[in-house]
Each structure stands twice: as C-alpha cells, then as structure tokens.
Design a protein around this nucleic acid. Structure first.
Length: 250
DNA sequence: GCGACAG
DNA sequence: ATCTTGTCGC
C-alpha cells in the first residue's frame, strides 16, 4: 500500500483537480473551442487503462440521434447480456443540443444527453461501447474517453472512419488488424470485423487495454460490421428520434 | 495558403 | 449526424 505507484492517472492528478471537478469539467458546456481543448488537455492523462475487469455480464451501447437540424439530441443506451447478446434494457432521453459539431470536440456535444439517458437505466452495465473514437484522437481524448471517464466504466471507442493517425490496410478477413499510429504512438487498432468489409477503428475509451477492446469488439460482433451493442443502440436511437418527433412536433 | 476533419 | 428512392446483390 505504498504511495509509490501513482501515475498520471492516480492520486496526484486527482488531487490537482478533484474528482468532483473532473465531472464538472466533463459536463460544463465550453464557451469556446479553445476552452474545450484546454479541458481535454487537462484530463487526457487521467484516462486509466487498468481498471479491474472480469468477463462482463452485461454490456451497454450508446448512440445519439438528432432532430430539427441538430437542435435536439436524442441519446439512447441499450444493455445486452454478454453471453448471448440478447437485449435486456433500452432507455432514451432528449436534450437541447448543448454544443455544435466540431471535429475533435464531440464529447462536449454528446456526453450531456448520454448521461441523461444513463441515469434512467435500471441495470448497471459492466462495460460500454461508444459510437466514436477514444484515444484515437488528436489530443487522445475522444468522445469515448469523455463518456467513459464520466461513467467510470470500462469503455471501448468504435469509429467508423478515421479522425487521426495512419495505418496499413489490414488483411481482408475478419479478425485481421493493423496499428493506428499517430505521432509515433499506437493510438488504436484498425480492425476487420467482417470479411471484405470496411474495417472499424477501435481504441481505448476508458479503463481497459487496447487488446481487451479488440477482444470484446470481436466477441460482440456477428454477421454485421458493427458490434451488436452499437447496432442495437443505433436502431433504438432512430426509433426514439421518431417517437420524439411525433410527440412534440416542430 | 491548402487540405483534413469522429458523429 | 441528417436530407432521401430505388436498386444491385447475397
């Protein structure tokens, strides 16, 4: 129990900010892009990779849809049983969109509505899949890190297209991969989840290793390119969006 | 100055 | 992300 092994993500960093302050910074709507970037730089080194993780019992998928020219955000969280990927819970919440879309600052836009939905959950998922990059981000703090740190859950970031970094073309078959390298660092894995289909960009969101992220991504993907938690979240998200339009038309 | 740029 | 019809293919 020495005071030795406290890296950048440990006690020292938390004492500089305070865990409460971290939550506030993650949820406060920045007034400028400059301010948003400063928050990311202050929190990037608090992204843990060593949370205690057993094989998850349940896994969540989160996604956000937009209405009326993006003025309203509809967030959805689905929960699946890890063993058979059966859907066991689905909740949604809508919010006035808090922040514009700016590449690299997606977390400030999607975290508020996602938290709103998350708090309506009856279950407490063991891990989370987020639709967007984690550390495969110019400042190593993509939306998956933002949401993972907020929820304090092992989180995987899944991007459908590249935000930063370079990579070789992975082999053509499911399971084949290539490192995603940005400024000399491996920030993610370009992973083929289906034969001859465009690969996904997998990266650490929060709490776990990149290897574990890849493992869980493959274990939750069947038949289609996207992992089941995200496929179902995407599907439920569109339904929730339609429900919202019909109830409170614009 | 020009191109790149998650969802 | 969203706006949008049909269409080519397994």
């Amino acid at each position: 129990m020495g005071s030795r092994r406290h890296g950048p993500g440990g006690r020292a960093a938390r004492m500089r900010l305070g865990v409460k302050s971290v939550r506030e910074r993650l949820l406060r709507v920045p007034g400028t892009t400059r301010e948003a970037i400063e928050v990311q730089l202050a929190l990037r080194d608090l992204v843990k990779t060593d949370l205690v993780v057993d094989t998850p019992g349940t896994v969540a998928g989160v996604d956000v849809a937009y209405i009326a020219g993006e003025r309203i955000s509809v967030a959805t969280v689905v929960v699946l049983r890890f063993s058979d990927l059966a859907l066991v819970e689905s909740v949604s919440a809508w919010l006035r969109t808090p922040f514009p879309y700016v590449p690299g600052l997606l977390g400030f836009r999607e975290a508020p509505p996602v938290l709103e939905a998350w708090e309506r959950l009856r279950l407490d998922p063991d891990m989370v899949f987020v639709d967007g990059h984690g550390r495969a981000h110019p400042r190593r703090f993509g939306v998956a890190c933002h949401i993972g740190m907020l929820l304090r859950k092992p989180t995987v970031g899944i991007g459908k297209s590249r935000l930063c970094g370079c990579c070789q073309e992975p082999g053509p078959n499911r399971g084949e991969r290539a490192d995603l390298v940005d400024e000399g660092a491996v920030v993610g894995t370009v992973l083929r989840t289906r034969d001859h289909v465009k690969p996904l960009f997998v990266s650490v969101g929060y709490g776990i290793s990149l290897e574990r992220c890849v493992e869980w991504t493959l274990k939750t993907t069947r038949g289609v390119r996207l992992p089941e938690p995200l496929r179902l979240a995407d599907q439920a998200s569109r339904k929730a969006r339609l429900d919202r339009v019909q109830r409170l038309p614009l």
